[in-house]
Design a binder for these strands. Structure first.
Lengths: 229, 229
DNA sequence: CATTGTGAAGCGTTTCACAGCC
DNA sequence: GGCTGTGAAACGCTTCACAATG
């Protein structure tokens, strides 16, 4: 017995729903309704976009009034699959892996750390954010015992592909990749990538445009900052 | 005297150029040329996309041969403004701030850490990744002395807006924001946001679709994983 | 009458397909 | 022959503008 033949939600909308959710969660308990204008203001986007985004969830607003905060929170959570926790396993207990494991702030929002594994014998057994680092070979056990669907790759780039393959072999179906490498995995696996260097390089591009560089100053200073042309 | 009336490069292309650059850098010294097909394969994208992306830099390929790796690297670096280092300043020496400061891997790729500041007196003076944590008020000094254009917000959410305002006041013009908050800054400032919880929530959405949830099972198990419907 | 929900237009990105060139 | 460079078509996302409505 199946209901609601689930609409496909555009990826761009999916990426914004968590933001709306966060904003709604920050509203005081006295705020019962919120308009697309207000939500748009908080999220820094266009109000029409908010309405269109929310319309994919169904028609949960009231004309002349707005959206009921509590109900909207419920609908977004349901759509994002946040009605229950998603334990994650972290591969790599280096700087980043440790920071992620310790970073309760993010992971406690429904993504508890089910385990941290590393290949380095020296790290195995140490505690990180309340979790004991286990050996890489324990991955399948952790994934099965804790019913993990999401894996986090926080290894050096050279080890990332192997980490991804082990995660997939262990039964993980989504991967968040922090290593600066393209992971080769079956198309059935969802992968998202966070690359800090890429982010900085994109900012660098904008800085460089801003400073008027790129326009080659033929007889001018070539030093880094603003070529006061 | 100004040359090359700089084409505007689409944002989507700008976001991919760092990836191409990384791949090109990983090629052995014996690889002199690379085709759009090969580059596309490594980057996991369509070959036509690679060609169109590179065409925005100018026509640097040779028909029948491909692109000369060294020259392409040079052109991409120039376009991204990576011909010189961009020192960054990190606000917040908590878990994430420390991990970023220590993470030579990313930041040494042209983004040296010019300074780390924090508001917490207990942290000031401690060493983190070879840099001494300084007090928040030193921000303007660091930015000016080290000619910093890019700031990284790695504070708790409640402190992020203040951190951003201080960065802007100090003269920073680009911000990489790790805090789960929308930053309110002048439109002249470039902001990029990395939100780990958002990434996980997007993966959660795909997991939930995969598992067939969302189709409400009227008389079935509501437990986490696959509802074998 | 404030605010939603949504067709339709506008815009940016991707992909195709092939002419142009080495 | 192989591969680039690019118009043009296709696609998806954003924004507009307004009818629908509590």
């Amino acid at each position: 017995m199946v209901e609601r033949p689930r609409r496909r939600i555009p990826e761009a909308t999916v990426a914004r729903l968590p933001e709306y959710l966060r904003i709604l969660g920050e509203q005081g308990d006295d705020v019962e309704h919120i308009s697309s204008d207000q939500l748009a203001e908080f999220a820094g986007v266009n109000a029409a976009k908010v309405r269109k985004d929310l319309s994919y969830l169904g028609s949960y607003g009231t004309r002349g009034v707005g959206y009921e905060v509590a109900y909207l929170v419920y609908q977004i959570k349901r759509e994002l699959g946040l009605t229950h926790d998603w334990p994650v396993v972290i591969v790599g207990a280096g700087n980043l892996g440790q920071a992620l494991a310790k970073y309760g702030g993010f992971f406690e929002r429904g993504f508890p750390v089910a385990g941290v594994v590393d290949i380095d014998g020296a790290k195995i057994g140490t505690m990180v954010g309340g979790v004991r680092v286990r050996q890489l070979d324990d991955l399948p056990l952790i994934v099965q015992e804790r019913k993990v669907s999401i894996g986090v790759v926080a290894t050096p780039p050279a080890a990332a592909q192997d980490a991804a393959e082990r995660l997939v072999a262990a039964g993980v179906t989504s991967i968040l990749n922090f290593a600066p490498t393209v992971l080769n995995v079956p198309r059935t696996i969802s992968v998202r990538k966070v690359d800090l260097a890429v982010e900085l390089q994109i900012l660098s591009y904008h800085e460089q445009r801003r400073s008027g560089a790129g326009l080659t100053i033929v007889a001018g200073s070539e030093s880094g900052r603003p070529a006061s042309a």
